[in-house]
Write a protein that binds this DNA or RNA. Structure first.
Lengths: 246, 246
DNA sequence: TTTGAGTTGTGTAAAAAATACACAGTATTT
DNA sequence: AAATACTGTGTATTTTTTACACAACTCAAA
């Protein structure tokens, strides 16, 4: 096979300069990072999209992405994009998958590393003055530029799996939240309804919620208690595994 | 930020040729695929390694990888590497993560997409005549070339999670297997002991195992029954999800 | 042929977790 | 003052998970 840097002949040790020649001259591919930025508002899971800046996709929305600089770490590129677009750093960010279809980008071979991030829309609202940048209901999206619909779907599926096994939901909420808000996050991400009493029982039993002795404000009904999530306690007590279940 | 292909100024539509110029001239990075090939033998989880063909890492073992050709799909590159090294196609293969540290490769910026695959060592034994290619106990590995130890660790952790939620274990076994062999796979991957009767009960209750009415041969003790895994039945009946659990 | 080693195959009782389910009380709006 | 929309709480039932023991079988070695 052409361009192999490993062979199965014993004792074929390549020099570094030979490899360098290969790396420099032959197999170079453009690399981008795309961020699926999730938020939660109006009891719906949202994703932040921008109008495509490519003529070919004019009118379509796309994820927030950028080329990776050759001197830039992947995670740093994702963090940079987030910071540029939302003004936020210190957000939950996780690599999802790398998408490398040959013809996914009209400009040539561009492979992209997808990340998703979870942000608290309230903290962020100020930043979207730009009317080419908008929050969209995840479930209303049918078409996006490039292969971004596929990237969104994959990220959403990963979020659905992860949110059940890790305390991600809190990243979509303010530091103080009511149990109803928390349940709404789960119900919208997982697209299901849960029993309110059992939901409460479950979270109280976990014992990671801190009752901060405050009540909701400005709700048009009886206000509920507010809680924090205690990440420290979680880190100490989190369980290792579960069992075989498929 | 330099090289941005998205801006937050409304109505900035880039032409395709402008983007093409960027992609061609600036942000090009070499791309490779590395495969973590897991096997199961002697009641241990194994990984297939090759002696590094780079002088800098002479003596160290490394994962099986190669540069991706600009005209090659990522999955195809992984499949190709597997076919080259093991002679097998039609194996379980899954993308794990992309590793992009700036200085991970001595030849310059090379980012690598890691895959893991699960193969049945028996089917494969013939192919390793090459004494630079060897199966190693996963748990005995302390150092590898490049950042391959980190890639292995990440892949192994992902395998541990996945094997509990998906029927992967069967890919490490022959089509016909005994329940003890199956339990040994789980115990070695998860590095734990399980109760034999409860293990059996669980798998029989799932109802995906087919009793093929054959017995183990050539075992130095009372032979057990052999089973197949019924993937069709699994695909039809697999559960959607579980619940909040962390 | 006997014995020891190493395994197979099987069931039940107890504990833990998940589920289903109803009503009185409180803040807000009209 | 009435309507709305939520809060907060407990129990009984079902399901799942866990812990645990023994007789029978095959092979290999004495």
């Amino acid at each position: 096979m052409a361009n192999s840097n490993h062979t199965n002949q014993a004792a074929t040790i390549k020099t570094l300069s030979a490899i360098q020649t290969e790396v420099k001259n032959i197999n170079r591919i453009a690399l981008s990072v795309d961020c699926v930025i999730f938020g939660f508002d109006e009891n719906k899971l949202k994703v932040l999209l921008i109008r495509s800046d490519l003529k070919k996709f004019q009118g379509l929305w796309s994820l927030l992405g950028d080329l990776v600089d050759p001197k830039e770490e992947l995670d740093s590129a994702a963090t940079r994009i987030l910071k540029q677009r939302t003004g936020l750093d210190d957000v939950y960010l996780e690599q999802v998958k790398t998408f490398g279809c040959i013809d996914r980008h009209p400009a040539g071979r561009v492979i992209t590393v997808a990340y998703y991030s979870l942000i608290n829309i309230q903290h962020h609202k100020l930043q979207i003055l730009d009317n080419e940048l908008h929050w969209h209901d995840v479930n209303d999206i049918t078409e996006l530029a490039f292969d971004h619909k596929q990237i969104l779907d994959t990220s959403y599926e990963q979020l659905q799996r992860r949110v059940q096994e890790h305390p991600l939901a809190f990243s979509l909420l303010p530091k103080k939240f009511s149990l109803r808000e928390l349940q709404n996050v789960y119900e919208s991400i997982l697209d299901t309804k849960m029993d309110r009493r059992n939901f409460r029982k479950k979270f109280f039993a976990m014992d990671f919620l801190v009752d901060i002795d405050q009540m909701e404000q400005d709700v048009p009904h009886r206000p509920g208690k507010l809680y924090n999530f205690n990440y420290n306690k979680y880190e100490k007590k989190k369980k290792k595994w579960v069992g075989i279940d498929f």
